[in-house]
Design a protein around this nucleic acid. Structure first.
Lengths: 125, 125
DNA sequence: TCCTATACGTTGTATATACAATTATATACA
DNA sequence: TGTATATAATTGTATATACAACGTATAGGA
């Protein structure tokens, strides 16, 4: 529930830029691989989600020209996803805004943030 | 993300009983008021959600005969929601299962759980 | 070579959420 | 009294998620 609350505020910040928090997350994953392409399974793994959802998020980003999809030549089951220049530019615009907002939003000290992350890690098992 | 992970495992546990984690949550809120009825706004407040979503969750519970809806006589804008005997019975069946699962799942000590809750409270502001 | 199992992705259905617009009732107050 | 405002809930649209069923493509073994 609490995580949702944060998530929503991030969504509100991103809304004027035309993407959701989850789509922003996918873009960051893609940038992490750049200039190498990512597969849908890789994206899904990083999001701890299903490939079916990665399929649809990527499709939304593709329609906005923020990513490109091409069938992988070496393994035609795969689809190579690559963030476009527009995607990178959008990320660079968004990063400082989102980071500042996150810090302010959760109102925790640095020490508390570390402890929170430690506990969340433990929860993940 | 982490909260989602937990949430899904709880959903998996509840699935055989025909309700979702969110619906279970609504039932518990209603039991907390029992035998007093709750309004949709009260439920939404407790869930840190919107009344629109409470409306739909309650409707699903109503179709399963787990709650009853009646228009409030004193204030006809309100709708009184009351958990039924079947609802209470289901909760009693589910509580130990869900609690055991939560404890196991998150793998934290009692002290850590308290600290986690404290930090989450701080985050809520 | 052929057949089976696995890998990668897509689509359909159900769940939940946020936000905006709308309806209906109640309250405040000029 | 009559009008404006606030409260309570509903409905429509968009977002995301999980799960299951399905369609290809690849790999491995008989």
């Amino acid at each position: 529930m609490t995580a949702d609350r944060l998530s929503n505020e991030t969504n509100a910040i991103l809304k004027p830029f035309g993407i959701s928090k989850e789509q922003y997350n996918v873009l960051r994953i893609l940038r992490g691989q750049y200039p190498k392409p990512s597969t849908l399974s890789l994206i899904a793994d990083r999001m701890i989600s299903k490939t079916s959802n990665a399929t649809r998020l990527v499709e939304k980003l593709r329609k906005k020209k923020l990513v490109e999809r091409t069938q992988c030549e070496k393994n035609r089951r795969r689809v190579d996803i690559l963030v476009t220049k527009q995607g990178i530019a959008l990320l660079e615009e968004l990063d400082p805004i989102v980071h500042a907002s996150n810090r302010q939003m959760r109102n925790l000290t640095v020490k508390e943030t570390k402890e929170l992350n430690r506990l969340l890690d433990r929860m993940r098992g």
